[in-house]
Amino acid sequence: MPPPSETHPTRGGSPVPAERPDMNEVVGRDDLLLLTLDTLRYDVAVELAAAGRLPNLTAHLPGGTWEKRHAPGSFTYASHQAMFAGFLPTPATPGPHPRLFAARFAGSETTADGTFVFDSPDLVSGLAAHGYRTVCVGGVGFFNKQGALGDVLPGLFQESHWEPEFSVASPTSFEAQVARAEKTVSELPADQRLFLFVNASALHQPNWFHLPGATKDAGDSLSTHAAALEYVDRHVGRLFTAMSSRRRCFAIVCSDHGTAYGDDGYTGHRLAHESVWTVPYGHFFLEPPA
C-alpha cells in the first residue's frame, strides 16, 4: 500500500464552503449524525480521497471531496467543547461564516438566517429540548467515563456508551462503535428523532496495527494514519445505513484536529501547527431507502 505524500495536496479537497441548509427546517424533521474522526489530518484525508482509497466516504462528500477547515481546538477536549457549543470547524477562507448551530447570545456575527439557535448552553441539550434522543458513542479517553474528566463530554447526552473495545488501543474499535450505533437505532421508537454523536478513535495514536506488516516498535506514521482512515471507510457505510434506515439524516463528518508526525520537528497535537489546525470537513444528507 503506497503511503500518502508528506506534502499538503489540494487535489481531492476544496476550500469552498459546502452548501448550507436551513437548519431550522432540518432540526425536528431529520435525524442528525455528528461523526468526528479524531485526530484525522487534512492532507492525508484529501490524498486518500483523490486516490480513490475512501470509496464509502467520498460517495457522500459533496463532489467527492473534503472541505478544508480550521479546527476550533488543538486537542479533543477543547475542540469538542467548542463543537458542542455550535462552533464546528471554520471554513479556511476569510469570513465571517454563518454557522449551522449557535447558542443565543447578543452580537454573534456568525448567527444568520438558517442557523438553528438554541437557548441552552450546548447543542446537545438544545436538541434534547426539541425532542431529540441524544446519544454518545465515545472513543478516545475523554469519553471513557472513567473519572470526572472522562464524564464531562458524555455527561451532556441523555445516553452514552463507552467500552474498552471502542478505545484507541483496539484494532477493531470502529466496528465495535458501529455495532453499538446500530443497536441504538434499532431500539428507538419509529417516531423518535435521534441525534447520534460518534467519536471514532481509530485514527488516534496508536494506529500502527491498521497497516499490514507494521510493527509496534516502528510506531505510528503517516502511512499507518492513512491505513486507519481506510479501515474506518470500510465500515462507515454500515453507520450511514443505520442512520438513514428510519428517515432522512443530516450528517456531519469531520476531524476535531490533526496531528503531527515529525512535521517541522513536532509530534502529536495540542500545539499550534498547520498539521493540527487544518482539518477535513463534510456535511450531507443521507436519504432513507425508497
Rank of each mutant, 00 (worst) to 15 (best):
L203Y: 07
A49I: 03
R180S: 06
G262M: 12
E47H: 08
R99S: 05
N144T: 05
T110D: 14
F142W: 13
T184K: 11
G73H: 03
A290T: 12
N144D: 15
F143R: 00
L37S: 06
R246G: 10
G150V: 01
L203R: 08
V279L: 05
L222R: 15
R246H: 10
A169S: 15
S125C: 10
H161W: 06
S223W: 12
R11T: 14
F75L: 10
E6R: 14
T172P: 01
D233P: 06
F116T: 03
T111P: 09
V236M: 08
P55W: 01
T39S: 15
R234N: 07
A51R: 14
D31E: 05
Q146L: 11
E274G: 15
L229C: 11
V253A: 07
V137E: 01
D122N: 13
G114F: 02
G237E: 14
S108T: 06
H225M: 10
A148E: 14
P2H: 05
A71C: 12
L88T: 07
A45Q: 05
G126W: 00
A59C: 05
L196Y: 07
L127S: 10
D22T: 05
G63W: 03
P98R: 08
L88D: 07
S74K: 12
A227H: 09
T110A: 12
A128S: 08
V232N: 05
F166W: 00
R270Q: 15
V140K: 06
A214Q: 04
T278S: 09
W208A: 02
S160L: 03
R104P: 05
G95D: 04
F195W: 04
P171H: 02
M243I: 06
F118Y: 03
R248A: 13
A71I: 00
E109R: 13
P280Y: 06
K216G: 12
R99C: 00
R193D: 12
S79D: 01
P288E: 04
H257Q: 06
F87T: 07
H60I: 02
S245M: 04
S275Q: 14
H70M: 13
S223L: 08
P17T: 01
D122Q: 00
A49S: 11
S125M: 09
V232E: 06
S120E: 15
H225S: 12
H273V: 10
F174P: 01
A290W: 11
P72D: 10
P98I: 00
G141C: 09
F166M: 06
D30T: 03
R53M: 11
A112G: 00
T7D: 13
L188I: 04
E25V: 11
P3A: 15
L100M: 09
G28S: 07
V135K: 10
M1T: 14
A102R: 01
A227K: 09
P89W: 06
S173H: 06
C249A: 08
R104V: 01
S5Q: 02
